[in-house]
């Protein structure tokens, strides 16, 4: 079901990770991605994974949540794994049967890719689990604010992101409702050819569009009534302020990157 998706959800909390400045968290996440893709050895990769799992422990997000966010991606993981396993043929041959050939090179690359993707998912889920969507868009707005100079509408983009995040659950619920209503009128959504099924979506998509426009109109009015007039002169409830812990976090991250590079070179 659509409702079970946990990626992108926010779990309010009070851990160190939650309290980090959202800008710092974005930078650390980017640094972590570098950490995942830089090394060529399992040692380097292992250090990256230690880093992210450590952060996960600090965040006190239940481990189950992480597994849940990985679950829908298992097919992708398997696909990448198999692809790499069978189509890379460097190193010694481990196993051969008719056309299928598995080599040490293929196996290592497959393992590398899978670990990297898992790391990527854990890292990015950790960011969204511990950072409210608003803080996230806020941080993106501020990190991108130098781009205002080249006339990029940074505030407007961030506002749009916030509103989109706000209305995703509402629209999912609405889609569910419209689907039930049309099914009750005998709409057949489950059988038929691809074209028939695409056609069957019309009675769902049109009402959904109509209602989205209506909501957008209402929301614009409500925003105007609350004195919204663009980004100029706006203040924020939650100030982004860097605290010592943010510098410590950046420092630790830098250390881990250095460690990754070293491990890769030395071992």
């Amino acid at each position: 079901m659509l409702k079970d998706i946990t990626i992108g959800q926010f779990f309010p909390g009070n851990s160190v990770v939650h309290r980090l400045d959202s800008r710092v968290k974005i930078i650390i996440t980017i640094a972590f991605i570098v950490m995942l893709f830089l090394p060529n050895s399992f040692y380097g990769l292992g250090i990256g994974m230690v880093f992210v799992l450590g952060a996960f422990l600090l965040s006190r997000i239940p481990f189950k949540m992480m597994l849940k966010s990985l679950k829908p991606l298992i097919p992708i993981l398997l696909f990448t794994g198999i692809l790499n396993l069978f189509f890379i043929s460097t190193g010694d041959v481990l196993f051969e049967w008719k056309l299928i050939k598995i080599t040490t090179g293929g196996a290592t690359t497959a393992a590398f890719m899978i670990i990297r993707i898992i790391g990527l998912i854990i890292g990015s889920s950790l960011l969204t689990y511990t950072t409210s969507p608003i803080a996230l868009t806020d941080a993106i707005e501020r990190l991108l604010s130098p781009l205002k100079k080249i006339k990029l509408p940074v505030h407007e983009l961030a506002m749009m992101m916030t509103i989109a995040l706000r209305f995703i659950p509402t629209l999912i619920e609405e889609t569910d409702k419209i689907m039930s209503a049309q099914k009750a009128r005998g709409a057949d959504l489950e059988t038929g050819s691809l074209i028939q099924r695409a056609k069957a979506l019309v009675p769902i998509l049109i009402p959904l569009f109509v209602s989205s426009f209506r909501r957008a109109e209402d929301l614009a009015l409500a925003m105007e009534c609350r004195c919204y007039h663009g980004g100029e002169g706006r203040t924020r409830l939650k100030q982004l302020k860097t605290a010592p812990r943010d510098y410590i976090a950046l420092f630790v991250t830098a250390g881990f990157i250095a460690l990754t590079v070293l491990a890769d070179k030395m071992l």
Binding site: K177, I178, A181, Q182, D188, I206, P207
Partner: peptide, 24 residues
């Protein structure tokens, strides 16, 4: 008939919309 059933209307004309169920 669901709550706020007007949100399920989608056809070009009133006639066609009422016809949707019977047609199915």
């Amino acid at each position: 008939v669901f709550q706020y059933p007007e949100y399920q209307l989608f056809e070009e004309t009133v006639y066609k919309d009422i016809a949707f169920g019977p047609k199915n």
